[in-house]
Amino acid sequence: MKQKNRLLGDQLVIAFAYGFIGLFALVCLYPLVLTLSVSFSSEQAVARNGYSIIPLSPSLDTYKYIFVNSGMKLLKSYGVTLLVTTVGTMGALLITSMIAFSLSIKKLKYRNVLAFISNFTIIFSAGLIPWYMVSVNYYGLKNSILALILPSIFSVWNMFLMRTYFASISPSLYEAAEMDGANYFTIYVKIALPLSKTALLTVGLMYALQYWNDWWHALIFINDRDLFPLQYFLYNILSNVNAISSGRIPSGASGNITLPAETVKMAITVITIGPIMFLYPYIQKYFVHGIMAGAVKE
């Protein structure tokens, strides 16, 4: 009898847990579904009735406006963003993992000093203007694809996360490899990296999201429209739509224009987060595991 009551209690707890998690998932899913619905609604229906979970007067006018008026430019900006995200993420992973591996080696001289210097840059910085002057005058990043890659190619926080993960690897593996004649670069490539795939995927996702969502560096460094990344290109579209809708007509635009301001915001959101939504589920388990591992291991 006691066993049956215990089983019944366990089932009730499991049912409650699934119900709570399902309700929480619906709450998290609601804004996304609402965004998607509004993006496929007509501007007039949204202005008249507000946002709705079901598309009001379903229409593709917003997407036609974005893709037809800016089709090739939009594809080019997609290409720029894909290039920057791919090259930037790979380069950032290489630099971050090499520094993290070096600082995880206890035999490295002055490793604590180097870690302190790295951590110091998080707390104190020279400021935006000196950073901009150095980037433009000394590194020539104005209107360069490198301006979208180099400023974000290293994160101290990600480096410390990877260092913690590398430090959790048994030193006996490194010692055995040294006895077999391997140098530290060989150990890094043959032992450390294969055992740290979770950390690499976690940090790689962080860098990829950072590069994919970046529009700030394009705003500062890029004037050539052919080098506009996706986020900044769509930001310009949204700015022009808002300007026209508020009566501030941009140069070259007619004064009698009615644009889908609200639905454009939602359509742009759908366009920008779409690729990340499809990518994230495949590496979610590695991301969560990597965060937990970096949080508890030392």
Rank of each mutant, 00 (worst) to 15 (best):
L23H: 03
Q210L: 06
V87E: 00
L161K: 02
T202L: 05
G22D: 08
L108Q: 11
I14T: 12
F278I: 15
G274D: 01
W131C: 12
D180L: 06
K2F: 09
F120D: 03
A100I: 12
A182P: 03
S170A: 15
L83S: 02
I191D: 04
S245T: 13
V189G: 02
H289Y: 06
F278H: 05
I105K: 15
A176Y: 05
V203H: 04
L195E: 09
P260T: 04
V68L: 11
K142H: 07
I169M: 05
V264I: 14
P55I: 00
S104P: 09
Q3H: 08
P229I: 04
G294S: 09
V156H: 03
G50D: 10
D10M: 15
F221M: 06
K73Y: 07
Y165N: 06
P31A: 04
S41D: 00
V189L: 13
F185K: 00
L146P: 01
W131H: 13
L193V: 10
S59T: 05
I53T: 12
S152C: 07
I14H: 08
S155G: 00
T85A: 08
N240W: 09
K107D: 14
A199N: 01
V46P: 06
L209E: 05
Y110C: 14
I237M: 00
L93Q: 10
M179F: 13
L82Y: 03
T269W: 06
Y280N: 06
Y18I: 15
F101C: 08
I95A: 14
Y286P: 05
T89R: 08
L209V: 15
P275A: 11
S246L: 11
L227Y: 01
K197I: 11
P31L: 05
Y235V: 08
G252H: 04
D10V: 08
Y18E: 10
S152P: 03
S172D: 14
S59V: 09
C28K: 09
I187L: 04
I99S: 04
Y65K: 01
Q3T: 11
L201T: 13
S118C: 13
P130K: 10
L83P: 00
L114T: 10
S239D: 13
Y235P: 10
Y65C: 01
K73D: 12
F185H: 01
N143A: 08
N158A: 06
S245C: 10
M159R: 09
T272E: 11
L7G: 07
I291W: 00
P260I: 04
L103C: 12
M133G: 07
I123K: 01
M162G: 02
I14W: 07
T62S: 01
L200R: 09
V203Q: 05
F166L: 13
Y110K: 15
L23R: 01
S170G: 12
T121W: 01
L7E: 12
V113W: 13
G88N: 07
V264Q: 02
M133A: 13
